[in-house]
Write a protein that binds this DNA or RNA. Structure first.
Lengths: 114, 114
DNA sequence: TGGTTATATTTCTATTTGGTAATACTTTGG
DNA sequence: CCAAAGTATTACCAAATAGAAATATAACCA
């Protein structure tokens, strides 16, 4: 699984990583701050950061000894664009769902009658 | 990893599963049709379908012996809403990225000069 | 310089995932 | 009813992931 889109969705498929994104949404945070905010070991956090970075979801700056972690809009853009592309099918899917549910109810009623 | 959002993103983090969603975007497909379209064994496809179903991305109808697979808007809605929530930080992140890149270039120039 | 802080990397382990092959189940058509 | 089609489930394997602990690296400061 090495395509960028898969990497990005996989990176988003973890609560700790989404929490990190949430924590840096309004401004950069140091790794140490992220370790304190999430109860996980420092190597654990660094590993998650690597996954997020390779997914294009974060960027690291270098400020003195610290490496503040920023949101990177590119990964979110990639994932959002994919989902947006399918949004045009959502309404149609809703309609078809309605039809499906109606049909299932009908069948259930029919079976109930037997 | 058992929360719905993680399940949905994980389901999207696979090219075969995204291909399946693409194939049913404009209308339901039988499992057999999906097996033919993706070169993977039938159990392989069924396994992917199970992942997609548990992620709220597909629904299965029952028509005679076949089980046509439909898009389910709920999973896409869930993932899309999460990403949308972060969209408001994107512009800000772009601005910060510009600042970051400027700073990095500045430092590179400085280092180059030495 | 040497000590300390901040972060990354390595190593190891348990769990999960993606795949195939074999088998079971279910429904319908003859 | 029974044979076959359509699909699901089971059993198994290889590879990837998530986590902790230990160690290495890098930059600042006294």
């Amino acid at each position: 699984m090495s395509d960028p889109l898969s990497r990005t969705f996989l990176a988003l498929a973890d609560p700790t990583r989404r929490a990190i994104l949430s924590q840096i949404a309004e401004g950069a945070q140091s790794v140490t701050a992220l370790v304190a905010a999430n109860r996980l070991s420092q190597p654990g956090i660094s590993k998650h950061l690597k996954v997020l970075e390779e997914a294009g979801l974060i960027r690291r700056e270098r400020v003195s000894r610290t490496r503040p972690v920023h949101l990177d809009p590119r990964g979110l853009q990639l994932a959002g664009a994919w989902i947006d592309h399918y949004r045009k099918y959502w309404e149609g899917a809703f309609d078809r769902m309605d039809a499906l549910i109606a049909r299932l109810n009908e069948e259930a009623a029919k079976n109930g009658r037997q």
